[in-house]
Amino acid sequence: MAELLRFERVVKTYRIGSVEVEALRGVDLSTDAGEFVAVMGPSGSGKSTLVNIVACLDTPTRGRYLLAGEDVTRLEDDRLAAIRNRRIGLVFQGFNLLSDATALQNVELPLIYAGRRRGRIDRAMDALRAVGVADRATHLPAELSGGQQQRVAIARALVNEPDILLADEPTGNLDSVSSGEVLRLLEGLHGAGKTIVLITHDPDVAGHASRIIRIRDGLVTQAGPSAPREAAGANRAASGAESGIR
């Protein structure tokens, strides 16, 4: 399959006062189109920095980041904005919906910044329908449950049909029932061919992915092509019918 995302010796250092902190210390990784990858690591491992760079919210200090073969490491601000707008869908732990806008208006945002006018509301409604919250279109985020808010956020991330859906601890603020729903939604999207990068510290959540990349102290420690054991079990449970036949 075509390589969609590639990190080459990516280093990111932050300056906190007079101290330089190396958040990423030379990360290499690669993801193909259509993969469902989980990035795992404890807090402070550099996960968040990785997400920010993948999402083009931040740029590497050294190294290269290629998105579908294009080096996006040194792009100017407006080009990065365009990439965030069209090629990457971001889902956050804290939903990050605009509190003064309805669900529909939130989903419309990426379309507005993409300069789309024709059929905008229809497309936003379609996205809401796809995640099952079309009936909440005119509600403000404060009037929605956590699970519903995260669905709206996913609809917003998907509305411009990005290459990658990047979900940063998407279930971190949700109860187990809502978490299950959101994860099933992600699996469904993967099944439909969407590339998904899921960042989490929770092995159960990571288990839904087809591949796990482990990160610790700013370095990738394991980026194996197959899912590890404990996650494989979860995978099997999720596709129980299939294993029953075998």
């Binding site: 407006d78 365009a82 971001l90 990050n96």
Partner: peptide
């Protein structure tokens, strides 16, 4: 500031 962050994350340019 948070609003700006959200808008920027979904693709707003500075000029927008």
């Amino acid at each position: 500031t948070r609003e700006i962050g959200i808008r920027r994350a979904v693709g707003a340019r500075r000029s927008d």
